[in-house]
Design a protein around this nucleic acid. Structure first.
Lengths: 148, 148
DNA sequence: ACATGATATTTTAATATTAAATAAATCAAT
DNA sequence: ATTGATTTATTTAATATTAAAATATCATGT
């Protein structure tokens, strides 16, 4: 009972920073996305709508790359959004392997309605840190994420 | 096509820091846990074994709280670990609602074998940042995570 | 033209994850 | 002591997620 890990200073510092990073991302993200409850959107579904809203219609391949998800996953997420008529598929004539995903009118209405709420939630959540601290966090995280 | 979000400075900074935080946590965690591939353990399964290894036997309730997962999820994860004989369940005599989860000998062997690899991966990954940067990241993340 | 290889999507099988409903055990309070 | 509320674990239903296999399409080189 209670034998916590005792490593070198370097190890303890790395483990500590790592666990705090994971926990912060987890709890911040779940608080920020709480407003999605009313819409019955999952985080990934929101991510798809948001990408289409800001970048225009996209291939499933590009959605997968942008959202860091597998192709099979995107297929299912698009299926579920399509069932709710929030997006529609369209086969690309020039390259019939590809499928272009578009917002429907309903999808566009929904995301344009909830995106400002999302921004407000992000701002409120990050306001725990000062402006310069947010910038510092961004710098550190970018270096950590950008490895390969 | 390509209409990126244009908000106030405050909004852009918050959104930027937020997305970098999420991406860093995601990619760092997936790189760190790559070594689990050989063991066929999922991240949550690893989390359960690690908690039991360092804290001793625990109730499912406490595992759920520590790993920030729902009770139903923990039930399934323990099911799958139990199938592989890595943990065992034991009803608590004093309070028969509770179930105490223990490492088996095989579970103990496995986690004590892979934990040093895990630590090495964390150290290597976090070495992108200097010691003081790791500490700064930890401080910022702790404040962000600790809200409520 | 045809074989080969690469790419995009879908499907399948397994686990994760949550919310909600259920069942069992305990606790509290009159 | 009995009723009522709380707590713990399980089950169920739905979506997420990945890896791997299967399909379909395109591109290339001969």
């Amino acid at each position: 009972m209670g034998t916590r890990y005792h490593g070198t200073e370097e190890e303890v510092r790395a483990l500590d920073a790592y666990i705090k990073l994971i926990r912060a991302a987890d709890s911040v993200s779940s608080r920020i996305h709480r407003h999605l409850d009313e819409t019955n959107l999952t985080i990934t579904q929101f991510g798809v709508l948001e990408a289409l809203y800001h970048l225009g219609s996209m291939y499933q391949r590009d959605l997968a790359a942008k959202l860091l998800k597998s192709g099979g996953n995107i297929t299912l997420v698009i299926d579920n959004l399509e069932k709710r008529s929030l997006v529609k598929r369209e086969r690309e004539p020039n390259d019939r392997r590809c499928i272009r995903v578009n917002l429907t009118e309903a999808g566009n209405q929904l995301i344009s309605h909830i995106f400002p709420t999302h921004v407000a939630a992000v701002v409120a959540e990050m306001a725990t840190l000062s402006m310069s601290e947010q910038e510092e966090l961004g710098r550190l995280c970018r270096r950590l994420g950008k490895k390969e």
